[in-house]
Design a protein around this nucleic acid. Structure first.
Length: 551
RNA sequence: GCGCCCGUAGCUCAAUCGGAUAGAGCAACAGCCUUCUAAGCUGUAGGUUACUGGUUCGAUUCCAGUCGGGCGUACCA
């Protein structure tokens, strides 16, 4: 429908220029209320300020130069403080219905970024344990955002960054070894900061099964690390697969050491005078004017880099790969640190404008009114696999994505689990299932309905208010995808799909679809159903949930 | 203390670039199944958009301050 919008914007621009007033960009809004028409412009109001003329007078001069009564615009009106309201002819929407049907699975895709490439890096959990519900929001957001990018034409590379060498992995190695040793000696000490999850015991038992006691008292931490990594990564990947998440690249931090990019990055800081040594550590000079209160360590006095240095090198690596857009998704606990990384990237002369960091706020879980507490120390962890098992992948995906990322999310597990009308997932899926039911019925009554040539479909019989309203909502889909993709906010798709479902259910209640006595009307309504089904399906694909045929 | 984010109906949240009477779902109340799925529909009620100022034709949106919450503030990631 954006074509229509562009057309009308042009008509207004022409009308404004005919008045002799200065022409500016014209913004067209969709008014919230139907009585204000289909599109609305505040052009007269913005001009009023500059020209010091009453906005309604300007609006009048503009609309007197807009032709109405044609196939495009039926009526124009001035309302309120000086809004120009435009009423679009039903024919436009009926034509758009045919577009939905003929474009099918591609309806809503746009080419605004075609020829461009994007890299989305997310999940990026180190292989120290299974994914848990704390990772969930990022997982589901990233999945939907990657889809959104593809729908606007980007070629998307999905990337997972991990580090199998650092502190965390040593900790895992020590934990695995301790559990292994405890098989022989119950009192063998477990590391203070060790990973207490049961999976560590399973890893130890697997080692015992394969190697018996041959690794007993072994000082080979690397062995335990590798065993731990292998097992953990396997279950992480299994979880990702069960959610339909696929990564094209698993980027190991250690490769940045092997190809000496970390060394080069460090050298670059030194040679530019951006770093200095103190207390045996290498410090990055931070700019107070950019809001940093103190300098940060790049290399610890132990000689090990902090996470900062490889992260900077990694982002430079991604920039060098030539992506047009680079996206990171982090939880709000990384809200400050990514700024340091971007600062470092910039300081070395790389353009960080292409890097877009999406920060999502934390999630709190509750069961009805009771909050669910989680702590890693006590292994009171709610693993993602458990959550999927409890509520299903669809409900999980939906709940994690249904709210804006930048607001705290209250995840009500008992609501997500609820198989009733209370559960918001079902409102959408039910609409889809309901349509499938109607179509099964149509197969019986009008078995040849799907042989209809869409372009020749008789849309003259479509005229009930529910039908027209539904067609209008359907035609918004392409714009919704674009605006959702622009701000990387998949929850907007859910908000939109809700209005599709709402208007479909209303249509269903007031308009009998299958009427054996009236084939022409039935056919047109069946095709409305097909279009709704298509848009629901396309929307579900973006947010990453399934489209059930029956419920 | 300082930095980032948030504060909207009883609850969970929407609200386009600063636009018109701030919208949904749940919960509450009142209706609708001999007709394609009642996981649905219709109606009622529910608001000083945390508070105080400012900017302007117009502020939930922008600015300043206050209060409240989350996350940071490591030679952890």
């Amino acid at each position: 429908m954006s074509k229509l919008k562009d057309q009308i914007a042009e008509i207004i621009i022409k009308a404004v220029s005919d008045t002799g007033y200065p022409v500016k960009e014209i913004f067209l809004d969709k008014p919230k209320e139907d009585k204000f028409g289909d599109l609305s412009s505040n052009a007269a109001m913005t001009l009023a300020k500059e020209l010091k003329l009453p906005p309604r007078k300007i609006a009048e001069e503009i609309i007197s130069r807009i032709e109405t009564g044609n196939n495009l615009i039926t009526k124009t009106e001035i309302a309120g403080a000086g809004f120009i309201n435009i009423f679009v002819s039903d024919k436009c929407y009926k034509d758009e219905l045919k577009n939905v049907l003929s474009e099918g699975i591609n309806y809503g895709r746009s080419s605004i970024h075609s020829g461009q490439s994007a890299n989305l890096e997310w999940v990026s959990a180190n292989p120290t344990g299974p994914l848990h519900t704390g990772h969930g929001r990022q997982l589901c957001l990233g999945k939907a955002i990657a889809n959104l990018l593809e729908w606007t034409g980007y070629k998307v590379t999905r990337e997972y960054y991990y580090n199998d060498a650092g502190n965390q992995m040593n900790n895992l190695a020590l934990s695995v070894r301790a559990r292994y040793m405890q098989i022989f000696d119950k009192d063998f000490p477990f590391p203070q900061e060790g990973y207490v999850g049961d999976y560590v015991k399973i890893i130890a038992e697997n080692i015992f099964a394969a190697y018996n006691d041959t690794m007993k008292d072994s000082a080979d931490l690397d062995f335990f690390k590798k065993e731990g990594e292998k097992y953990t990564f396997d279950i992480i990947k299994k979880t990702l697969i069960s959610l339909g998440i696929h990564h094209d690249i698993f980027f190991n931090e250690s490769s940045l050491y092997n190809n000496s990019e970390i060394e080069q990055t460090l050298e670059a800081f030194k040679s530019k005078g951006l770093s200095y040594e103190n207390d045996g550590a290498v410090w990055l000079k931070m700019d107070e004017e950019k809001g940093f209160d103190k300098d940060k360590v790049l290399v610890k006095s132990s000689g090990e880099p902090t996470y900062r240095l490889p992260d900077i090198a990694y982002h430079i690596d991604k920039i060098k790969r030539g992506y047009d857009l680079i996206i990171d998704i982090f939880g709000s606990d990384h809200g400050d640190t990514y700024k340091e990384v971007l600062y470092g990237v910039n300081a070395l002369g790389y353009d960080s404008d292409k890097i877009k960091v999406i920060i999502h706020q934390m999630v709190t879980f509750k069961m009805g009114n009771e909050s669910v507490k989680m702590s890693k120390r006590s292994d009171n962890v709610y693993y993602l696999d458990e959550l999927i098992n409890d509520i299903g992948a669809d409900a999980m995906q939906f709940f994690y994505v249904m709210r804006g990322a930048n607001t705290h999310l209250d995840f009500d597990i008992s609501l997500a689990k609820d198989k009733s009308e209370k559960n918001p997932v079902y409102y959408l899926q039910y609409a889809h299932a309901r349509i499938c039911g109607i179509l099964r019925n149509a197969d019986e009554v009008f078995p040849s309905y799907n042989e209809t040539n869409v372009t020749e479909l008789n849309t003259d019989v479509i005229n009930s208010p529910e039908e027209m309203k539904l067609l209008k909502v359907l035609s918004d889909f392409p714009d919704e995808v674009i605006s959702s993709a622009k701000t990387f906010e998949p929850h907007k798709i859910i908000t939109y799909l809700n209005s599709v479902a709402e208007n479909f259910h209303r249509f269903y209640h007031n308009n009998r679809v299958i009427d054996a006595e009236n084939k022409e009307l039935s056919l047109s309504r069946i095709h409305i159903c097909l279009a709704v089904k298509q848009i629901l399906k396309n929307g579900f694909d973006i947010i990453g949930i399934s489209a059930p045929d029956r419920m």
